[in-house]
């Protein structure tokens, strides 16, 4: 009698635990890596703008109110310190994303039809955000795309940093000067992504909540 009750109880606890687990939208490792990445990215971008200002590629510079480091030397110190955080964090993310199958499950497949249909739905305000565990095709495309941009910005950064020791990498980007432009445009893409990403997270607050508390 008591054993049956106990096993019943166990079963219901298990079911409850399973339900809770199912409700977890963003697992803890994703959340930790996401916010670490956000912090490192902001440091990299603001110090990168400081470095850019020393020798601008285009006819503009970034206001000193949004740069980090105070002068070129300070910007470089920040950039080459935050890069370790960004790279180590990014490598862990890529490793876990591949090993756990998260990338495959969450981001694939990306179909042209799906992207077009979801873009249309989004623009007409008909895109549902009911189930946050499933990304729509626009999300899939953007999240997969930003991972690729993240890889390219790190590689182009290494190509600029070490054009002699890593000269094959630098050559792959079309040489030192070309690598600087690649690095800049990747930054621009990430900033554009961040703007859209933050605005949408604020428009769908439960997605922001999920990235903070997990559900």
């Amino acid at each position: 009698m008591s054993s049956i009750a106990a096993s019943d109880e166990q079963a219901s606890t298990k079911a409850a635990a399973k339900a809770t687990r199912a409700k977890v939208i963003q697992p803890a490792w994703v959340r930790a890596l996401h916010w670490t990445n956000a912090f490192a990215m902001v440091l990299m971008i603001m110090s990168g703008w400081q470095i850019y200002n020393a020798s601008p590629l285009f006819g503009f510079t970034f206001s000193s109110s949004i740069t980090l480091g105070g002068w070129l030397g300070g910007g470089l110190l920040w950039h080459f310190a935050a890069m370790w955080l960004l790279m180590v964090n990014g490598l862990i993310y890529l490793a876990l994303g591949l090993a756990t199958g998260r990338f495959r499950k969450k981001l694939l497949p990306i179909t042209r039809e799906g992207v077009l249909a979801d873009t249309k739905a989004a623009l007409t305000g008909k895109l549902s955000h009911e189930d946050l565990t499933k990304y729509n095709y626009v999300q899939k495309l953007l999240y997969a795309g930003i991972i690729v941009v993240g890889i390219v910005i790190v590689l182009s950064g290494l190509a600029i940093w070490k054009p002699v020791q890593l000269q094959y990498l630098t050559a792959m980007f079309g040489g030192y000067e070309a690598a600087r432009y690649v690095h800049f445009f990747c930054m621009a893409a990430i900033v554009a992504f961040m703007v859209v990403h933050v605005v949408l997270a604020l428009l769908v607050p439960k997605s922001l909540r999920a990235m903070i508390v997990g559900r």
Binding site: V42, S64, W78
Partner: peptide, 13 residues
């Protein structure tokens, strides 16, 4: 000056 400016930015952040 450089120290001050980077400190300022960090404080903000």
């Amino acid at each position: 000056i450089s120290g001050g400016a980077s400190l300022g930015a960090l404080t903000l952040l």
